[in-house]
Simulated assay, not measured.
Amino acid sequence: MPKMKPHSGMGKRVKMTGKGKIVSEQAGKRHLLEGKASTRTRRLTGTVELAKAETKRIKKLLGR
């Protein structure tokens, strides 16, 4: 049986916490920022925990 290889692109986009939760940067802060209010862009900074519906798929991609 071949080796399980983790998806290197997904590994760069998400991080696992110590308890196994998946954390990533919040979406919506890459482009078209002039049209967005500064309060909105400040709110989009930092990392957020991903939805539980996505965790199973992402853990499979990470090889965990």
Rank of each mutant, 00 (worst) to 15 (best):
I22E: 13
I22D: 15
V23L: 15
S24M: 05
S24H: 05
S24Y: 07
E25S: 08
E25F: 06
Q26P: 10
Q26T: 12
A27F: 09
A27Y: 00
A27I: 03
G28W: 02
G28E: 02
G28H: 02
G28P: 07
G28A: 07
G28N: 02
K29G: 13
K29P: 04
K29A: 14
K29S: 11
R30L: 10
R30T: 10
R30N: 01
H31W: 06
L32P: 02
L32D: 06
L33E: 02
L33Y: 00
L33D: 00
L33H: 03
L33C: 05
L33T: 01
E34S: 11
E34C: 11
E34Q: 13
G35N: 11
G35C: 09
G35L: 12
K36A: 12
A37G: 14
A37R: 09
S38H: 12
S38W: 15
S38A: 14
S38D: 10
R40F: 01
R40M: 04
R40E: 00
T41H: 00
R43K: 15
L44M: 12
L44H: 01
T45E: 01
T45Y: 03
G46P: 07
G46Y: 06
T47F: 07
T47Q: 07
E49Q: 11
E49H: 09
E49T: 14
L50W: 00
L50E: 09
K52S: 12
K52V: 13
K52R: 10
A53E: 06
A53F: 08
T55Q: 09
T55R: 11
T55N: 10
K56L: 08
K56A: 11
R57G: 04
R57W: 04
R57L: 01
R57C: 00
I58H: 01
I58P: 03
I58R: 03
K59T: 08
K59G: 11
K60M: 05
